[in-house]
């Protein structure tokens, strides 16, 4: 199960933080700070996995943005790596060539997209097309 998802830039600014387990605000800030510290200086040749407390963080870097998932120690790391990539593809498709600024100004939409992709810490839909279609329907209601 995914414990939380973080989207941070290289400076450590959080662009999206979704928690599927309850944490105090102070604890969240600490987690965000620690995860950023863990991933930001890793060599690109290194594994995309870092052990974090009793869990592990699967992260992937896209330009200046780090996508980090914290998952259970028994979860399939490679699968979550693929999962990050699918999420990025969806974002890319939705914002057509996504960049960090899109995510900043449309942060609430990013959450909306994420909620169509992952729910309760589990993958909800694996088809990019299905998600994009669903997002289109939701946009019309705004």
């Amino acid at each position: 199960m995914i414990r939380f998802i973080l989207l941070q830039n290289r400076q450590g600014k959080t662009r999206l933080a979704k928690y599927y387990v309850p944490l105090e605000d102070s604890e969240k800030h600490k987690v965000e700070y620690e995860v950023h510290r863990l991933v930001v200086n890793r060599d690109p040749k290194f594994t995309n996995f870092v052990e974090f407390r009793t869990h592990k963080v699967i992260y992937r870097r896209y330009a200046g943005l780090f996508f980090s998932l914290c998952v259970d120690i028994t979860d399939n790391e490679l699968a979550y790596l693929e999962c990050i990539h699918l999420f990025v593809e969806i974002l890319d498709h939705f914002f057509s060539n996504v960049c960090e600024l899109d995510l900043v100004f449309n942060f609430h939409k990013v959450y909306l997209i994420l909620d169509e992709f992952i729910l309760a810490g589990e993958i909800q839909e694996t088809s990019k097309r299905a998600i994009i279609e669903r997002l289109g329907e939701l946009e019309k209601l705004e």
Binding site: N76, A79, E82, L86, I123, T126, S127, A130
Partner: peptide, 16 residues
């Protein structure tokens, strides 16, 4: 095409 990733149909479903 809808579920294809690197030539495999829906790896997520496989894994689950």
């Amino acid at each position: 095409p809808e579920y294809d990733i690197a030539g495999i149909t829906d790896p997520f479903l496989h894994i689950r």
